[in-house]
Amino acid sequence: MINLNTSEQNTWCPGCHNFVILSCAKKAVSELINEGHAKHEDFVTVTGIGCHAKLYDYINTSGFYGLHGRAIPTANGITLGNPKLKVMTFAGDGDVYAEGISHFINAARVNPNYALFVNNNKIFALTTGQVTPTSEKGFPGRSTPKGNPFTPMNPVSLALEAGASFVAREYSLDVKNLTETMKAAIKHKGFAYVDIIQPCITFHNFTEYVKDKMYRLNGPFEYKKAMEKAKEWDYSDSADAKIPVGIFYEEERPTLSDLFDNKNWSEAYPERKINSALWERFKV
C-alpha cells in the first residue's frame, strides 16, 4: 500500500474543507494506482498560491508548488516535457479566475492533458478575506466594506465556451462523488476541469446557502444541454437558485502534447548528441 501522507505540519484552519479535498485526492490517487491506471511515481501535484496550495506539502507525490495564477502554464509545460506524467493541478478561485484567467481560457482551448481542480471558496482566504471574480455581488470583503460592487463570473459556462473537453462541478463535502469525479478527471484524456464548491469556514461560509440548492446531474450531456445546465447557477446568492453538480460535458480530442508528438524527452534522448558540426549548415 502506497503511503500518500507526509509528515508536514498542517496549517489549514481546523474544520477547513481543504482537509476533505486532500483526502479525496489521496483516495483518488490511491485507487488509480491500485486499479493499475498509473504508478505512484507518475503523479505530479501542481499548485498555485493560496490556501489550496498547501496541499503540495501534504500529499506524497512529486510536486510543483508554483506561483499565484500560474499553476496552469506550469502544468502545460510538465505535460510537454513528459506526457506520461499524471498531473493533478490544484488552483484557487482568486488564483485561476483573477490572476491566471488568460491561462485558464487558453488551456481550455489547447487541451493540455491533465486535471484542473479549482478549490472555489469565492474568497481570497490566505490574504484574509477579499473578493474574487466568483464572489457574489454585495459580499462585504475586506477590500469592499460596502459590499462587492461586481457581479460574479460563471467559470463553468466560460470553460465550456472556451472549449474545455471535460467540465464538472462538485461540492467539497461530498466525499464519494468528489473522489469519483476526481478519478474521472485524471483519467480523461485532455483538459479536465472540476470547479469544487468549497465554503471557507473562516471568511466566507456559504455552506447553508449551497446545501439545499445542489442537485446531481445525470451527465455528461451534449454541448448545448451542458451549456444550459452550466447557466442554471450564476454564482450569485439568489434565494431560488438551483446548483447542478456532477459532470456537465466530456469529449475526446487531441491534446496539447499530442500535437507535439507526445515525446518524453529525457527518455527519448537520455543524452543528446552534442554536435558543433551543425555550423556546417551555414557553409556557402
Binding site: L67, R70, N76, G77, T79, G81, H103, S266, E267
Partner: peptide, 10 residues
Amino acid sequence: SAGLGASFAG
C-alpha cells in the same frame, strides 16, 4: 512557466 514545467519534467 511552461518552460520551467517542461524542464522540471526533464
